Simulated scan of single mutants.
Amino acid sequence: MATLIDNYEQQYAVLTADITAKIGRISVLNGSEKRPFIQDVDRELEEAQELLEQMELEVRGVSGAGRDRLRGRVESHRAELKRLTQEFETAKKPKSEIVDLGLEESWNNGITEEQRKRLLDASERVDRTGRTLQNGYRMVLETEEIGTQVLKDLHDQRETIQRSRGRLRDTDAELGRGSRLLSGMILRALQQRLILAVVTLVLISMGCFVIYYSFKS
């Protein structure tokens, strides 16, 4: 339960930090330049209100001494949201209608020490979240660099394999030509041996025939 509330508080801290930044932009812009920021802040204030309602629902389900502590945290967030809403309403007004409200004095009078401590804790959580995101982004860049190098190595290996295949095909073709040449040479040698055997047989036959008739006569 507390973990869920902590998650809601982290989302709330990030959201209110963005709201604060946009209110600062609204206060220095004029006319139509304010409109998109005003629309964004209206939407984010509604989201922040919904997060507070979710936190209150979760607090109701908590029993024991921790319930009062969580309720105090939610009240601190609600006071902060009220302050942001007031600042937003003031920032929306034309500059000619804005009166110096003594922001420092309003801050000191409108927020208790406990609420200020909660706001500082929320700010620290936002900073930690930002550092975590930066570390994650750096890891993504490093992983992308490693992946690029691996792809380059694989590409080089693929080219090496393709060149080796080409050499193997050429070698195979040379071996094929050599095998055909050797087969032709063997065939011609066999033919010559056959012719020599036939000639030898004819000569032997003729010699026998001559010798036979010599003795006969």
Score class of each variant (00 low, 15 high):
49 Q>G: 12
186 I>C: 05
171 T>M: 08
13 A>Y: 02
1 M>H: 06
168 L>H: 07
187 L>M: 13
166 G>V: 02
138 R>E: 15
162 Q>T: 12
182 L>K: 12
204 I>G: 15
26 I>N: 00
112 T>I: 00
40 D>Q: 15
162 Q>D: 10
161 I>S: 03
210 V>H: 10
88 F>E: 01
156 D>S: 10
165 R>W: 06
34 K>L: 08
173 A>Q: 11
47 E>D: 14
70 L>Q: 03
217 S>G: 08
217 S>V: 02
82 K>D: 13
10 Q>T: 05
73 R>V: 00
91 A>C: 11
54 Q>T: 01
79 A>K: 12
72 G>H: 03
185 M>N: 08
20 T>N: 09
6 D>A: 10
170 D>S: 10
126 V>S: 04
92 K>W: 06
198 V>M: 11
83 R>W: 03
205 S>Y: 12
16 T>N: 06
44 E>K: 15
125 R>Y: 02
103 L>V: 11
155 H>A: 15
161 I>Y: 04
211 I>W: 07
41 V>S: 04
180 R>M: 05
108 N>H: 09
51 L>P: 02
114 E>G: 01
27 S>E: 13
211 I>Q: 04
54 Q>A: 04
77 H>Q: 07
139 M>N: 15
158 R>F: 09
126 V>M: 04
191 Q>C: 07
191 Q>W: 13
113 E>S: 12
155 H>P: 00
81 L>T: 06
43 R>L: 14
211 I>D: 05
206 M>N: 07
177 R>D: 08
149 Q>D: 13
77 H>T: 01
145 E>V: 10
20 T>L: 08
49 Q>H: 08
63 S>G: 11
208 C>N: 10
181 L>Q: 11
140 V>E: 14
207 G>M: 07
130 G>P: 00
37 F>G: 01
155 H>V: 11
106 S>V: 11
154 L>H: 12
48 A>T: 04
205 S>M: 09
24 G>W: 02
212 Y>G: 04
120 L>Y: 04
66 G>F: 01
86 Q>A: 13
110 G>D: 12
193 R>F: 07
189 A>T: 15
12 Y>A: 06
52 L>Y: 03
154 L>Y: 14
54 Q>V: 02
1 M>I: 03
14 V>G: 08
51 L>Q: 00
17 A>F: 09
45 L>G: 03
201 L>D: 09
162 Q>V: 09
139 M>E: 15
3 T>A: 06
121 D>W: 05
132 T>I: 04
177 R>H: 10
168 L>N: 10
203 L>T: 15
103 L>H: 08
211 I>C: 00
182 L>Y: 13
49 Q>T: 14
184 G>P: 00
216 K>V: 02
11 Q>P: 02
112 T>F: 01
187 L>G: 08
50 E>T: 06
68 D>L: 11
120 L>W: 03
142 E>L: 15
188 R>L: 14
43 R>F: 09
158 R>Q: 14
100 D>N: 13
171 T>G: 09
3 T>E: 13
123 S>K: 05
165 R>D: 13
156 D>N: 08
85 T>I: 03
33 E>F: 06
104 E>Q: 11
98 I>A: 05
122 A>L: 13
117 K>H: 05
65 A>P: 03
133 L>P: 00
198 V>A: 15
152 K>D: 15
53 E>P: 01
182 L>C: 03
130 G>N: 13
85 T>L: 11
196 L>V: 11
129 T>M: 10
116 R>S: 08
174 E>R: 13
